[in-house]
Simulated assay, not measured.
Amino acid sequence: MASQPKGQGIDITSLSMQQLSQIKKQFEDELTHLSNSFTQLRAAQVKFRECLRSIELGVSGKVEGKPILVPLTASLYVPGTLADTDNVIVDVGTGFYVEKHERCYGILRSKVEDLAVNLKALEKILQEKNDGLRMIEDVLRQKVISSGTNSSTS
């Protein structure tokens, strides 16, 4: 199989209906995978934003000494009291913990910004894949119509 120079495509109108169907299936699988990745990245970004907000609003002098719920797992909380709002440990993801100070804010902000860049790039790829899928579907539809016309005139 000869390789084509990068950036050159093939004329999809010259492909058989079976080949177009296979390419369509491949595009649909890629779109499903990319959409799932997009959803997971968006969820991670929301989680980091909520973490930032929680630190900025929830770990302040106003809550010192007041009852709070302390997470032990994702779904298990126990009552507690925040004794010192300046000395808390924050989970910044993937098992890394940082004391609450500007470095913590910087790490979380950086993660939110990095995810925004990745989401924007992924969104562009998703759009390109959707456009490609629509083009393949159009050509496939035309081939089905023309094969139906050819068989009825024979």
Score class of each variant (00 low, 15 high):
Ala2Gly: 08
Ser3Thr: 11
Lys6Gly: 07
Lys6Ala: 11
Lys6Arg: 14
Gly7Cys: 05
Ile12Trp: 03
Ser14Pro: 01
Met17Ser: 12
Met17Gln: 08
Gln19Leu: 06
Leu20Asn: 08
Leu20Gln: 04
Ser21Phe: 07
Ile23Asp: 01
Lys24Gln: 14
Lys25Val: 01
Asp29Leu: 04
Leu31Tyr: 04
Thr32Ala: 14
Asn36Lys: 12
Asn36Arg: 06
Ser37Ala: 12
Ser37Cys: 03
Thr39Gln: 13
Gln40Leu: 14
Arg42Asn: 05
Ala43Tyr: 04
Ala44Pro: 02
Lys47Cys: 04
Lys47Pro: 02
Lys47Tyr: 10
Ser54Thr: 15
Ile55Met: 11
Glu56Ile: 04
Glu56Met: 05
Leu57Arg: 07
Gly61Trp: 01
Lys62Phe: 08
Val63Glu: 10
Glu64Ser: 06
Glu64Phe: 04
Gly65Leu: 11
Val70Gln: 10
Asp86Thr: 13
Asp86Gln: 10
Asn87Ile: 03
Gly95Lys: 05
Phe96His: 09
Phe96Glu: 07
Phe96Asn: 07
Tyr97Thr: 07
Glu99His: 06
Glu102Asp: 04
Gly106Asn: 14
Asp114Pro: 04
Asp114Cys: 11
Ala116Met: 03
Val117Met: 10
Asn118Gln: 15
Asn118His: 12
Ala121Asn: 10
Lys124Phe: 13
Leu126Cys: 03
Leu126Pro: 03
Gln127Leu: 11
Lys129Asn: 12
Asn130Lys: 14
Asp131Ser: 12
Gly132Thr: 01
Ile136Val: 15
Asp138Gly: 02
Lys143Glu: 00
Val144His: 03
Asn150Thr: 03
Ser152Cys: 00
